[in-house]
Structure formats: C-alpha cells, structure tokens
C-alpha cells in the first residue's frame, strides 16, 4: 500500500482537465469513437427531449463510472459484464422513475429510449476502458466529459432539426415571430424524419474533420 506515499494529485490537474475536455472534440464519443449512436438519433427531433436525454445519460455514465471504479478490485473478470449491466440497469431504472414522476410528457416521448440507455455503448465502453482501471475521481470526470461530448452533438442536431423542421426553438415559434412564412417560407418536413439525423451527424463529422486534419481516417 504505497498509495499514501504518493503525492496527492490536485483535483483539477492538467491530466484531469484533459479527461473532461478531450471527449468534447478529439475523442468525441459519437463522431470519433462511434459509441452510443443507437439511442442518440431517435430523440433529436425536438430540443427538449434531446436535452432531457443528455442529462439522463450524463448522470448515468458519471455515477456508473464512479460505482464501478470503487468496486473495480472486487469484480471477478469473468463476470464483469453482468456486474456492469446490473449497475447500469439499476441506475437507469432510477432515472426512468424520476423522469416519469417529474416530466411525464417528455418521458412518454422518449418511450423505449430511456430503457435503451442500458445498452448505450458509451456506458459499456467507458466502464470497460476507463472505470475498470482508474480511481473514482478521474472516472467521474471521464464520465462527465463523455456525457458532455455526447450531449453537445445531440443539442446541435436537435437545434437544426427543430428549427428547420418545425420552425421552433425550445418550443418557441421563432420562425413565426420573424414573419418569414409571409414570404413563402415553408417548414422542411424531411428534417423531422429520422434519416435526416444521420445525415446531419455526417455533416458534423465532415465539418469537425476538415477543421482538424489529424482526425481524418486513413484510406
């Protein structure tokens, strides 16, 4: 036990700050690691559900990271997947009950996708790759960072889909107040349909990778 002898690391050292910031861009869970696309896309037709989904995923991934990181020395490697799934499923049940109690209409809109946070690859990916090998505080930051990285993509996609598809932002009828309908502007119904979310993410990847050439994939 030489843990005490080690110099105590500052709470927000450069290494820890990297954990928080890298997932926003260089290591983004959706656009670079391709994790958690499953439940990300279907909830982005409006901003409100996307925001609630972001908060839920962020809470689950941060808390699950901490819990698994605390238990990491006690989990037998052979059954670790089951243990991780049980921890995640318990947390998701909590989130689901909270959503049903406080924002029932949004929880209805999210339908099965709250439950699908369990199989969200971000969670398994972070637990396997990070929480099983690190202390609770870095694991918490890593979870939070990945939650943010996942969240900003969701918010950007849902902003454009809601603005162009229904002409509103956060349910506020911005297009109507600007009066553009009088000039013959029409909402683009295609934006509401699920395939447009995929194409928008494709475009985000395009922009991100052309800004940062180091991210371009080898042929």
């Amino acid at each position: 036990m030489n843990v005490e002898k080690k110099e105590k690391e500052a709470l927000f050292s450069i290494k820890n700050r990297k954990l928080l910031i890298n997932p926003l861009h260089k290591d983004n869970p959706i656009t670079i690691q391709v994790l958690g696309v499953c439940s990300a896309l279907a909830v982005t037709a409006k901003m409100k559900p996307a925001f609630v989904m972001t908060l839920s995923v962020m809470a689950v991934v941060a808390v699950a990271n901490v819990l698994i990181s605390i238990m990491r020395n006690g989990i037998p490697p052979r059954i670790r997947i089951i243990v991780q799934l049980v921890v995640i499923a318990a947390l998701v049940i909590l989130v689901d009950q909270v959503l049903k109690a406080f924002v029932f209409d949004i929880s209805k809109q999210l339908s099965v996708f709250v439950g699908l946070i369990i199989t969200n690859c971000i969670l398994m990916g972070r637990l396997e790759a990070f929480a099983m090998a690190n202390k609770p505080w870095p694991a918490f930051l890593d979870g939070l960072g990945n939650g943010f990285g996942y969240g900003w993509i969701l918010i950007v996609v849902s902003f454009f889909r809601e603005l162009l598809g229904s002409g509103t932002v956060w349910d506020y009828p911005i297009m109507e107040n600007l009066g553009v309908y009088n000039f013959g502007y029409k909402n683009n119904g295609l934006m509401i349909l699920p395939p447009m979310a995929l194409i928008l993410i494709g475009i985000i990847i395009w922009v991100q990778k052309s800004k940062d050439k180091s991210l371009i994939e080898e042929k």
Binding site: T31, G202, I205, W206, Q208, K209, S210
Partner: peptide
C-alpha cells in the same frame, strides 16, 4: 472527400 472518409 478526405474528411468524410470512413465514418462520415
């Protein structure tokens, strides 16, 4: 186009 290669 290079930035779209692969995933995009």
């Amino acid at each position: 186009p290079a930035p779209l290669r692969g995933l995009g």
